[in-house]
Design a protein around this nucleic acid. Structure first.
Length: 505
RNA sequence: GGGCGCGUAGCUCAAUGGUAGAGCAGCGGCCUUUUAAGCCGUUUGUUGAGAGUUCGAGCCUCUCCGCGCUCACCA
């Protein structure tokens, strides 16, 4: 049962009084003829010929300035704000008093009248009639700017508590227009990615979120249970293994944009569920995928921000192709002074790191690939600001990627880095069923004592591959991270409408 | 999970261990072209929860809850 504070009690009282006077505070239907923006455009077009513009508008009351026998107010709708002007001459004394006393900031109302321009020049609706569409019981965390005598503007009561903003996103959206804009742009981003892939003959598909086995990434899954089947199920950690099954089925270019779930830490760049884009492209290799990637991201940047140049914090990022290409071995050598090619075993590599950087050493028990990954994260990653493709990865941390011909320890894999963090990951996909089975078994051995890294062997995936899978290039990208970059947001929570939060109470 | 920090009115924030405050919002007035108007008057609190120290706790201690930053974890 809700408990009401003093402000809410006053509004509930008003609500009852309105009902008593025959005004339904939550009518079933509303009507409007124009949005605020349409009304302004139409009025301005007909203004010179003194053409009368009659409209019905609807929106949320955002400000009220009662002035005795007249009243000004602004409502906000999906297209913006517009001023309403109430006079006793048009609406009568009783209705004006009803408006002034019984209506509150946050109420949804509709108003019918004729467009006009005030003395101050603002295009305004002169109201002839109005009605309540929905009473607001809880006051919005309204903000207010006040200009002081010395000219400085003091902003009072802006909703900026990150917890309330995320938990009560509805209130955040209602009072912070720039937040609405953020999510409009995010929608544009997703639309642009779709349009790009559609234009390149990729087929959008949907694969299971609820899976009997999980795979395609090294991450801990969420586990659930199907009652009727009496079977444990997992929320997917990637789309990879299902999408590649489709290549076996002769679908040559497929993609999916959807939610992945990883039961891991939460941080400014990790949310337990996040939006992933993956595509698989038959007869292509990782170099072709690289080119398509830079084109796709540059296209999306232009669609969302109007340019390939994007400001992200202190950086000006330019997504214009071609992006810098850096071989991983070379990059690590430059950043850390260690040539991984000279240290073929984990032990040797560990010694080399310890000799060079005594204060920055990986877990001595780690595999060679993990140590390389450590070097990458520790020394190289922070230096990769402008969009960069880092390519050629160690085989043992890439169980689904194909080796470079003649170099069995290195795979045809790249990751795209921007502003010091990983944006995407792609490779020439392994399509040899026997090699794939071997890789799965190696993984099982390497991580036999590591419950978190142990992955189930997907026999059905191997069966699919044995039917024959065309050579192909695959790609995965965190859409939320791209949104962060394009929208200059430094926390993933700013680009998620409802980020994961601990339960209240 | 570890470390650091924060939590005070509806909102944004003050308050050397000594009477819990301000602005805005709200409420009551005045006001027929305002610009998130102005003027007069006025209400608002389990200081996140619980325990302890103290003559006395918003402030000190402990436990818990939530959030932020950070480290760890993380293709």
């Amino acid at each position: 049962m809700a408990e009401y504070n003093s402000l809410e009690k006053i509004r509930l009282q008003k609500l009852e009084e309105l009902r008593a006077e025959g005004v339904e505070p939550y009518p079933t239907r509303a009507s409007r003829t124009h949005t605020s923006a349409q009304a302004i455009v139409e009025f301005e077009a007909g203004e010179k010929e003194n053409k009368e513009t009659q409209v019905t508008l609807a929106g949320r009351l955002r400000s009220m300035r009662p002035k005795g026998k007249l009243s000004f107010a602004h409502i906000e709708d999906g297209a913006g704000k517009i001023q309403l002007f109430f006079r006793v001459n048009e609406v009568g004394e009783a209705r004006l008093e009803l408006f002034n006393k019984m209506f509150d900031l946050g109420d949804f109302i509709s108003a019918t009248g004729v467009m006009m321009r005030t003395k101050a020049g603002e295009v305004t609706l002169q109201v002839h009639d109005f009605s309540l569409l929905a009473k607001s019981v809880t006051p919005l965390p309204a903000d207010k700017d006040v200009t002081q005598a010395d000219g400085t503007v003091v902003r009072y009561a802006t909703l900026d508590d990150p917890e309330i903003r995320a938990r009560q996103r509805y209130a955040d959206l209602a009072v912070n227009p720039e937040v609405r804009e953020t999510f409009r742009k995010r929608a544009k981003l997703v639309k642009a990615l779709r349009a790009f892939l559609d234009d390149h003959d990729f087929l959008e598909v949907e694969t299971p979120i609820l899976q009997p086995l999980y795979g395609g990434a090294a991450a801990r899954p969420f586990t659930t249970h199907h009652n009727e089947l009496d079977q444990d199920m997992y929320l997917r950690i990637s789309f990879e293994l299902y999408l590649k099954r489709l290549l076996v089925g002769n679908l040559e270019r497929v993609y999916e944009i959807g939610r992945d779930f990883r039961n891991e830490g939460v941080s400014f760049k990790h949310n337990p569920e996040f939006t992933q884009l993956e595509f698989y492209w038959a007869y292509a290799d990782y170099l072709q995928v690289m080119e398509l990637t830079e084109q796709m991201v540059a296209y999306a940047a232009e669609q969302v921000t109007g340019s390939t140049k994007v400001t992200f914090g202190e950086h000006e990022l330019d997504f214009k192709p071609p992006w810098r290409r850096l071989e991983m071995r070379q990059g690590i050598l430059e950043a850390s002074g260690i040539d991984i090619a000279e240290h073929a075993t984990a032990e040797a590599l560990f010694k080399a790191i310890k000799a060079k950087h005594p204060n920055k050493t990986p877990d001595p028990q780690a595999t060679r690939g993990k140590m390389i990954d450590f070097l990458l994260g520790e020394f190289l990653e922070p230096t990769l600001i402008q969009p960069t493709f880092l390519y050629n990865y160690p085989r043992d941390i890439s169980p689904l990627a194909k080796s470079i011909p003649g170099d069995p320890l290195t795979v045809e894999r790249f990751e795209g880095y921007v502003a010091g963090f990983e944006l995407c990951n792609a490779f020439t996909e392994l399509n040899d069923p026997l090699d794939q089975e071997q890789r799965f078994l190696e993984m099982g051995r390497d991580y036999a004592n590591d419950e978190e890294e142990k992955h189930p062997l997907d026999e059905d995936y191997l069966r699919a591959m044995r039917y024959g899978m065309p050579p192909n290039g695959g790609f995965g990208m965190g859409v939320d991270r791209l949104a962060m970059m394009f929208l200059n947001k430094h926390s993933i929570r700013e680009v998620l409408l409802f980020p994961a939060l601990r339960k209240e109470e």
